Computed example of a mutant assay.
Amino acid sequence: MTNLSSITTGRSPLAVDAFSLGLQSKSVARKRASAKARHLIAFALLVSLGGITHAEQPPTLSPATTAAAANLVDIRALVPDIAEDIKYAGRDNFVGAPVDGYRAPACLLLRPVAEALARVERELRTRQLRLKIWDCYRPARAVAHFVRWAHDLSDQRTKAQHYPTLDKSKLLGDYIAPVSGHSRGATIDLTLQRCAADGRHCTPLDMGTDFDFFDVRAHTDAPGITTVQHANRLLLRDAMAREGFRNYPLEWWHYTLTPEPTPHTLYDVPVQ
């Protein structure tokens, strides 16, 4: 949910402020409404972050203002009964409040990504398994909300559930990045469920940690989990890999379709 594989992990407070006050600020967006200006902001951000690891082209902020304009579709248009618990649309998340940009508990993805995920779900159902989705496309403004929360060291409401072994001051950088791959519309956070024969009574598999647990135990191959928990993580990883999704190894729940449909474009349309 946090780190972005295509951008270096080294970050500074200046980079965070540039993103929070520039790319995400509504007042700046109004003053600099042109796509060219937003491109320059995104480019400056990438320079401040130290460059790009797998491509020379820096990401740009899409001018799209609606999901349709961004080619984002609701996964339920393809799988109407897919299980969802969109964490950032409510209060059950590490921020402890609804996150900016989430106006509805919906999973939006770029159409090719949604189609691939629907194929994963259909294959799993032949084995009495199903997915459960926690997050999909994430507006850039939501990422800025995460950064603001991380700077507020007085807010410790979710520490016991999400970062019990870490000081909150350590979350920026390693766990919360100023740019998220979710904002490109090809990344999903999810888990796996086993269902009864009727397909209606499903129970999440034991993965060893909750979603958004900031700890080494959340690494897909973490040594401190049980054999069953590791096997469940690999079961999810194998099912996703068959349709082209790559796991982010520091978060067992995090998957990105490869190659990404728009690897150099960030989106900021609301989820609704």
Rank of each mutant, 00 (worst) to 15 (best):
A144K: 06
L250K: 12
T187S: 09
E251Y: 10
S6Q: 09
Q57H: 07
R122W: 06
P59G: 01
Q229C: 05
I7T: 06
L205Q: 10
T256S: 14
Y102A: 01
T258V: 11
V16F: 13
A18W: 14
H39N: 14
R125C: 04
L124W: 06
T60G: 15
G208H: 04
S25N: 14
D198A: 06
S180M: 10
A89C: 04
A68G: 08
P112R: 04
R194G: 05
P263H: 03
A44F: 09
H39F: 11
H54G: 09
K36A: 14
A42P: 01
G101N: 05
P259M: 02
P261R: 06
V228A: 14
D206L: 03
K170Y: 10
G181A: 10
R246A: 15
I133W: 13
L172G: 07
R157A: 14
A231N: 11
G51C: 08
I7E: 00
R111T: 15
P105A: 08
G173N: 09
C202S: 09
D152N: 15
K26T: 13
P58H: 10
H145S: 07
D152A: 07
P249C: 01
F213W: 11
C136I: 04
T8D: 13
R127C: 02
L266H: 06
P139M: 04
P249F: 08
D155N: 15
P261Y: 08
L117Y: 05
Y175W: 15
P223R: 12
E84T: 14
R242H: 09
K36G: 10
G51A: 04
T226H: 05
L109V: 07
P270E: 00
A64W: 05
I188G: 00
L45P: 00
Q161Y: 08
K36C: 06
E243L: 10
R91E: 15
A29L: 13
A37K: 11
A64L: 03
L61I: 11
D198N: 15
D152F: 02
I7V: 13
T66I: 03
F214I: 04
L14Q: 14
V79C: 07
T165W: 04
I176W: 00
T227R: 12
